[in-house]
């Protein structure tokens, strides 16, 4: 469950802007989704192997070249789909808990 949400977050961060893993981490940390970087790499590798992401190497001034990740067309479609599911879920949960929240 949390896994799928994390993927959704990563995909939307990358969709917003071509990103480098530690940028993604920074944003995820801000929203308290993930705490350590190590967990991100396996996820990115898997998304890439699934054809949702691709990356290119860019030279950096401080260290080794960095991988910058982009969404593929497939990834974009997948993101839309996930967003759809997420909204439906949000709606359903909101509907179910509405009474409790207003009390």
């Amino acid at each position: 469950m949390r896994k799928g949400v994390l993927e959704l977050c990563i995909l939307s961060i990358i969709a917003e802007k071509e990103s480098y893993p530690s940028d993604i981490i920074k944003k995820l940390k801000e929203s308290e989704m993930i705490v350590v970087e190590g967990t991100l790499y396996p996820l990115l590798t898997r998304l890439k192997n699934a054809g949702l992401l691709h990356y290119n190497w860019q030279e950096s001034t401080t260290g080794p070249p960095r991988k910058y990740f982009n969404l593929t067309e497939e990834g974009d479609a997948f993101l839309q789909e996930l967003m759809g599911t997420w909204n439906a879920l949000m709606h359903a949960v909101n509907q179910s808990t509405k009474n409790l929240q207003t009390k």
């Binding site: 590798t45 080794p64 960095r66 991988k67």
Partner: peptide
Amino acid sequence: NSEGCDEIIADIENRMAE
């Protein structure tokens, strides 16, 4: 056991170097 193990390790090593 995960797929892309080498890549994950390489990414982590790169990041540690950085």
